[in-house]
Every structure is written in C-alpha cells, then in structure tokens.
Nucleic acid binder design. Sequence first.
RNA 1: GGAGGCGUAGCUCAGCAGGUAGAGCAACGGCCUUUUAAGCCGUAGGUCCUGGGUUCGAGUCCCAGCGCCUUCACCA
Length: 494
Amino acid sequence: MSKFEQQRRDKRRQMQDLGVDPYGGRYEETESASSVRARYIENQEGQKARCAGRIVLLRDIGKLIFITLRDFSGTIQLGLSVKLLEKQWDLIKRLELGDLIGAEGQMGRTKTGELTIWTEKLTVLSKALLPPPEKFHGLADVDMRYRQRYVDLWANPEVMERFLARSAMLSSIRSFLRNRDFVEVETPMMQAIAGGAAARPFITHHNTLDMDLYLRIAPELFLKRLLVGGMEKVFEINRNFRNEGLSTRHNPEFTMMELYQAYADYHDMMELTESLVCHLIQTHCQGTILPFGSMQIDYSRPWRRVRYADLLKEFAGCDIDDLSAVRAKARQLAIPEADIDDAVVINDVFEATVEMNLINPTFVMDYPAALCPLTRQSAADPRYAERFELFVGTMELANAYTELNDPDIQEANFRRQLRGQKAEDSMAKMDEDFITALKYGMPPAGGLGIGIDRLIMLLTGVTSIRDVILFPLLKPVSSTSGPDDLSKQAQSDS
RNA sequence: GGAGGCGUAGCUCAGCAGGUAGAGCAACGGCCUUUUAAGCCGUAGGUCCUGGGUUCGAGUCCCAGCGCCUUCACCA
C-alpha cells in the first residue's frame, strides 16, 4: 500500500473517531451545480442551495476554506468558514481532494465575484483513499486513461462531455428512426454460424450444450429474417465482434447500427443516411464543417454520389473494364495480383488509390457484384451490385444494399464464396435456415449499416476509436488477473 | 506480426558526452477569513517498466522481455 493511501486511511480513521461515517448515505433533495448557477438571482439574500459532488480543488486559507465541487453538471464553489461550521471544523480540516461531500447553505458571491455556497452543514459522502491526478494537467497518461476511465471521466471534463455527447447522439438516432416508424429489435450475439459479413469471429463455448458458438460479426441475417416475419422497418444498435487487428479505427467489439426497410432500395438508404447524419450534426454540432484530425469535413448537402467505376478512373486512372490496365496498376502499386480474382484485384487497387481521397461525405455506388454476395445485382448491368459505401474523412462509415431476396441466387452466392476458402475466413457463410427464410419470401428491401463508433469520432472530432469507447480493449497489465486464472480458480473450486 | 516512439516521485514532466536523481502539483509540519492551478516558510518522498550485458561507474550505451502510442500489414 502506498504511503498516500495509508495517510488517507488514517484520515478516515480520524473521521470515524469523530463519529462520522466516511461513506455517508442517502443524500437527496440536492441540486446540480449548473442549476444552482442558473437560478441564482444577483444581490438577493436568503437563497439556499444543496449540492453533492467531488472535491476537485481545495484552497485552505486557515479559518476559511474554498472548495471547488464537481458534479455531473459542472462545478460550484463552496465556502467553509470557522464561523459557520465551528462544530464540524475538526472534520472539515480532514477533507481532501477527491472526497465526495454534500453541502448546503446560503448562496452569495465572493469579493472576486465567484458564486459560492456559504456552507452551514457539510456531509461526508465518500472518503477517497487514493489521491486524484494532478489538478491542472489532469490524467494524461494514455494507458491509464483507458485502464482507469473512472478517473479519466472526472479528471478530464472534456472526456465526460464526449461520452455524454455520444449518449445524446445515440438517443437522437433512436428517435430519428422511431419517427420514421422503425422498430428497434435485438438479435442473437451468440450464433452457431457467424454470417452477414466477412470477418474472423471470436469463438466461445456453451458448457451445458457442449457446443461452440461464435460472437456475431453482424446481425444482418437475423434482421432480414424479421423482414420475412413481417417487420417492415427494423433496426438494431448493438455490438459486433471481429477477431482482427486493432487500430485507431478498429476495436474488436464495436457498435453497429443496422436497419432494413421493406420495399425500399439503396437509393432510399442514401437519403436516409444523409438525413440521419445531418440531423445529428444539426442537433449536436456547431455548423456544417467539422474538424477531424487535420481535415475539415464539409457535411453540406447534397453529398457527392459517385459510381465506384468512376472513382477508379478518377484516382487510379484505369477503366474498370480494362482488366489488363487494372492489373498493371496493381503491379505498379506492389499489390499482388497473380492468380487473384479480378474483382479482388480491382478492389485492392480501389482501396489503395481512392479511399484516402474521400474526405467530404461521399457515397460510393455500384460495387462489382462479385464483392457483394448479399446484394441484389443491378437490373441494368448485372456486373454491378446495388450497393454503396459512405466514406467520410477517408473512413468507411456506412455500407448499404438493395438486399438480395432471391433464395436461389443467394444460395449460389454463398456456395461460390465458400469454394476454396477456409471456413473461418470465408466471405460468406452457408446459413441454410437463412435460405429457407428467403424461400418463404422476403420483401425487396434496402439495408444499411452505420459504424456508430466511427460516426461518433467524426461528430466529436477525435481520431482514435478508443476515445469514443468507454472501456476499449487493452492487454491486461498483470498476467495474474486474466480470464485464464479465473477459470483455473473455478476449476479448482469445483 | 513488421517499423518507429514512449515508460523517471501519487500526478504532469525535466534530466543524456555514462559520473551522488530534479521541478511543479499532490503529501506532511507551520502561518493565513474572500481564494480561483491561492500564497509564504519548512520537511519528506524513487525497483529511473522488468531481466541480463558492457563499464571503475548505467536513468543514460547494448541485448531480451512487458505495456502503451503511432504507422504498416490483417480487416467490406
């Protein structure tokens, strides 16, 4: 135990010796700091206030102590004087940074104009045994900020603000969709077949059934079953899990919003996406040009809509139908192309040349059909699929299709994708029951997926996904506290 | 997995041509009834990430490992 903790434990002992419970109890009828500030009427005597929060600054001037109290809403200053608190003074002298307290008294201003609660009664609500981070710089160590987010949140107010913004944005997404008559549902996260996307899944095990299960990589196939079942507008906002590398744009578990709208197509999904994101910006952001890293992203409508093939022409300089030109470009970029499928080579070239240039919101339309096993082919030109991806700030933010609802084509696509691939790496999984569902008839539909974490990054202007996920995945500091040891413990217990 | 960077007091950070380990905040003792990162005087505080090596001597140089960051690879 650190000497700091020991000192604080001593202080707690001293509080208890004074007959004070260092962990308080119910402390209701309080008011938020911001509310106190808002309702204060200048120069009017007799206004009372009662607040609770954490001591984030403490200035002891002898017989007078100023405390800056932080609660969920902001901060408020307490003035503690011997004159008003003589009976509690021994206790008050033992207050420290980080302690949670409640205070009530008359409101007033100090000489310097700071609104202050001249405290008449003080209640200790929780004694902090560990010292807070440095008061001016806050908690700066990136590793500790993620590992001890509970400290980061109150030591760095902008972190709290960002996560509150995330929460508010999520609420807005839900109300936006509810206003368009979408129904929110929850589908399985533990699946026997991890389908609906191309990604390596996490594997887990059910003991009683003695079967392996996958954590889902996408909810797509279940949401489409709901279309078969008669839900015409459904959405789900929940976690997907992908067993892949970590980066500033990838966390192994991430939040995806997927929605499906019967009788619609990918053009409707474009309209919906643009409306939704612009609604969020209007509601939660300042202006329509938002900073993202070194970029300034202009969200003014309408957003650019451009065909995949046209972008390939624009940035790679080759015609999508001129495969020898595309392959030459690939070689020039040191992208492997020998014995690799045409569509894959085209897409590798696309990713290497186009995506980095897509800063302002851009709908990339009409992907090569071979890349899109779950998408309906274009009636006009079956080499292309009615699919778009939305890029913003060079990131893929959304992905949408006109959904494929022909069970025979769907089954053929699955089989083609499965051929020659390891099961866990395949682009598509054979899900017999999903095919069965389609045979009962799925309405034509538009489907859309939006990466919520990335959306929040863009709207809050942070370039690392870890800054919009409360508890991002990190390696454990000590190997003695991982799940391995817990399971060993459990085994030795039984 | 590759490359680069970082890891020093509770926190934020200095320290490098290898030569007794530093500051601010926090803490501890003292003074102070209007402070705003309060101020003043004093005190204490270290596995310099871990383990090896080179050296008379390593926070500093070398090797290995651990963790984090960035980037590349992987990745609809």
